[in-house]
Design a protein around this nucleic acid. Sequence first.
DNA 1: TTGCAAATCTGAAACGTTACAAATATGGTA
DNA 2: TACCATATTTGTAACGTTTCAGATTTGCAA
Lengths: 333, 333
Amino acid sequence: MKREPKPTLKTLALETGLAVTTVSRALKGAPEIAKGTRDRVQRAAKAIGYVPDRAAQRLRTGRTNVISFLLEPHDEMLSFGTMMIAGIMESLENTSFHLVVTPQFEKSDPLGTVDNIIRNRLADGVIFCRTTPLDIRVRMLLEADYPFICHGRTELATPHPFVDFDNFEFALDAATRLARQGCKKLALLNARQPFTFSQHLMHGFMTAVRESGVSHVLPENVSIDSAPEAVRDTAMTCIREQGVDGFVCAGESSAMAVIAAVSDCGLRVNEDIGMVAKQTTPLFGQIRPQIDTIYEDLTAAGRQLGTLLLRRIEGAPVSELQRLEHGEHRYRD
Amino acid sequence: MKREPKPTLKTLALETGLAVTTVSRALKGAPEIAKGTRDRVQRAAKAIGYVPDRAAQRLRTGRTNVISFLLEPHDEMLSFGTMMIAGIMESLENTSFHLVVTPQFEKSDPLGTVDNIIRNRLADGVIFCRTTPLDIRVRMLLEADYPFICHGRTELATPHPFVDFDNFEFALDAATRLARQGCKKLALLNARQPFTFSQHLMHGFMTAVRESGVSHVLPENVSIDSAPEAVRDTAMTCIREQGVDGFVCAGESSAMAVIAAVSDCGLRVNEDIGMVAKQTTPLFGQIRPQIDTIYEDLTAAGRQLGTLLLRRIEGAPVSELQRLEHGEHRYRD
DNA sequence: TTGCAAATCTGAAACGTTACAAATATGGTA
DNA sequence: TACCATATTTGTAACGTTTCAGATTTGCAA
């Protein structure tokens, strides 16, 4: 690998006849460096294309200029990761931060992953998703006073930065709409138990059920993380054996499975069986028959997560770093 | 942020009564360190949870222990990124490498991104996708003799590592199948021109068309990157005005758009209009009506990319670092 | 002219690691 | 016992940056 020596502060010092220290300070615009010198150094730096060495900076200052994003690679929603990442990247543009994606296989203890980051100062801040009510990662990071932000809320007493989607509202609106459409028995295809947002979904769903007086079913063996085949089978059982005529789907994947189930039952979506699903990709608007959806913008969420985390790193108070986003109705009519 | 001082080589040296140098070499199992000493040091390291400081190593050795993955965040196939990343991560497990995702907005010059990586040695190796026949990134990296691997091939004279999917074969098989099913006029929903694999697709498609004597259409205003609405409109035009009765879809998103188009024309997929699509997510198996697909395993591709790149970094010859993967037929019968 | 504060600039040390040359210990042979 | 080769360990320097304390220069009042 060819390597013409990279320009360093020393190069610049030689070039300008100044001391390394002076060059360093001039580049970051320190006020005790004469204006003329500052300009001269900065011009020289631009000219030879100087960029500070991250490793050296990191070694010296302890700042890594890295944001670590914990990703469960086999997430049910494949597009989830990319959209989040796209958003985070946008928020990091024009900063010196790099985005490191750290695998967090669910079975392998999240503890180890986070502990590793904390103890070896692998990042200046951490972002993660799929938050649980008593999330161990949140507890560890709070304990270490390490900057982080998560997608989803916890039930912990200590407030912490988060970005969440209002899943209560989503499920409430969705179920209410189905009831208004005349559905008599609703099913909720929920997220997996451990995640906080599954409780929000459930709560919203049950509130609507109660308010509108319809009956309901909560399939237990299956979640939006389950294999689509399993979801489809469960949905068919709901339809055939339990008289369900309306589904609230918390994910696109399970929505497709429900559509498949309806079709495989010889019934028609919307006509015979009502559906409202959460939509997170534009793609889903092309599904036929079209269904009512409520849109969650994950790229925007990623952008928020990144932006707020940067603020957190700069020391902003937690109270300014909490966001609850709302869904956008995309109903057919 | 609480910081109990991280154990370093010095800590270990004090603890064991050895010199820092000795500790360093003992930890990497250098043969000139007495067996007993090595064991002692390694045990001590384990005990206090010593992990070498990445910044210091990087500064000293020039090795970054970083793989940079160039990602176009607004890719047409949202799941693409996550699946690739999942694969790359798997290949990096149990190595000291971290995965840095570097944004590569298509309009913003890829030149800058790659040049930055090369000049500032931001990574030990680079992975990217959406390769073009005369890909500028490939040329720059070859020129700099910088380790990299790409998803897709080029037409450059210098051989280089790659992992590609046999899109020629895919399009050939898909079109042939449609012709056998009795379709008379086929359309190819291709990738965008600039990418090498669009030529492979075209070539495979045309070969099948020629061999089976059917007629064909190559919609030009639209690609698998286009908005689904545009694809759908084009597909409807194909069906209504050009008599197309079979589609080869190079992507899931456009496949859904075609299904929508067929449905919106009041026709039935498979019965009236034949389709074969490339499938890259399990989700797509739930689409109704079911359609014939050929499966491309992107996670496996990511795994390959990572593994081969690591070999490249270790100096393996290019000839061992080229792979062409084949699709897996998922036909309905 | 002298003195002194303010304005600029500089040198040395340190972050944690590895490479190199050199020092010491060990064992065996003359 | 003296000596040398081998085995093992050590000290120093360097990677590129920032920080700290200190050095030099400048301008101006006395």
